[in-house]
C-alpha cells in the first residue's frame, strides 16, 4: 500500500509518501500529520515524488490537513506530483485549493 516518512526541522514538517495514499492508510496519514501540527508544525510539505496513486480518501485527507494547518496560521504545500497525480487534482479542481510544486526544492523556495 504505502508508507510515510517524516522529517521535522523547526516548524517545517516534510512527509514523504511512498506507494499509495488511499482508503487503507489515510487515517494513519492524517493522524501522523495532525500530531505534528499539534506539536508545532506550521509549514507542512507533502512530497509525492515516490507516490503511485491517490484515491478520493487520500485527497480528502489532504483537504482536512490543509484546513487544520491554516487554522493554526500555517500553510500546506504539495511537491513532486507526476502527470497522473496532477490529472487527479485537476479533475477534482483541488489544483485551485493547493499549491502544487514540481519538486521539494521548488516547494521550499519562499516557504
Amino acid at each position: 500500500m504505502g508508507t510515510f516518512t517524516i522529517e521535522r526541522d523547526g516548524d517545517l514538517l516534510t512527509v514523504v509518501v511512498d506507494g499509495q495514499l488511499v482508503v487503507g492508510n489515510r487515517a494513519e496519514f492524517k493522524q501522523l500529520v495532525f500530531d505534528e501540527i499539534e506539536a508545532g508544525a506550521r509549514r507542512v510539505l507533502i512530497d509525492f515524488s515516490n507516490t503511485g496513486y491517490i484515491d478520493s480518501s487520500g485527497l480528502g485527507a489532504l483537504v482536512s490537513l490543509g484546513k487544520r494547518v491554516r487554522e493554526q496560521g500555517g500553510a500546506l504545500r504539495l511537491a513532486g506530483l507526476n502527470d497522473d497525480l496532477r490529472t487527479l487534482f485537476e479533475l477534482t479542481r483541488l489544483d485551485t485549493l493547493f499549491q502544487l510544486h514540481g519538486s521539494r526544492a521548488d516547494a521550499l523556495a519562499g516557504f
Binding site: 484515491d55 478520493s56 485527497l59 480528502g60 485527507a61 483537504v63 484546513k67 477534482t92 479542481r93 485549493l97
Partner: peptide, 10 residues
C-alpha cells in the same frame, strides 16, 4: 472543494 468526502463517485 473543501469537503473531505464526496469525490469517489465523481
Amino acid at each position: 472543494l473543501e469537503r473531505e468526502d464526496g469525490r469517489g463517485v465523481f
